[in-house]
């Protein structure tokens, strides 16, 4: 999947990855790639500034923690982040339902 197509959804994808788990940057990237079967292919370096932006917006919080013997910045969802994620999921379902109704239904019936 092209990086440009992903950019508009990156925030929602990052929030979804953190749903129920506190993860450090590389673990978030691994989770994104695993859950998408490797289809989400964007420069991994763009994830870190995006996480900072989400933190600035109060949607995630971070703290330095020792993971695997190393000090790493670990991110978790805030209550505002959980609310934003729920909103993103609802909007995505509505969007895919609408698009699927047009694209996924096969050819239009021809008028008699």
């Amino acid at each position: 999947m092209k990086p440009d197509a992903l950019r508009g959804h990156l925030d929602a994808l990052l929030l979804a990855t953190l749903d129920g788990a506190a993860l450090h940057g590389y673990a978030i990237i691994e989770a994104l790639q695993q859950r998408s079967g490797g289809a989400l292919d964007l420069p991994t370096g763009t994830v870190y500034p995006a996480l900072r932006r989400l933190e600035r917006g109060g949607l995630v919080a971070s703290e330095w923690a020792t993971v695997g013997g190393r000090q790493r910045r670990t991110y978790r969802l805030t209550s505002a982040g959980r609310k934003a994620l729920a909103g993103e999921r609802t909007a995505w379902r509505e969007f895919t339902t609408a698009i699927d109704g047009v694209l996924g239904g096969g050819p239009w019936p021809t008028p008699a």
Partner: peptide
């Protein structure tokens, strides 16, 4: 290579630094 070209990634990092300074 996965991380991204340094000029592209640099723009994203610089923007975060700019906004952090502004805030």
């Amino acid at each position: 290579e996965e991380f991204g070209p340094v000029d592209e990634i640099g723009r994203e990092y610089q923007a975060e630094l700019s906004v952090a300074q502004g805030a």
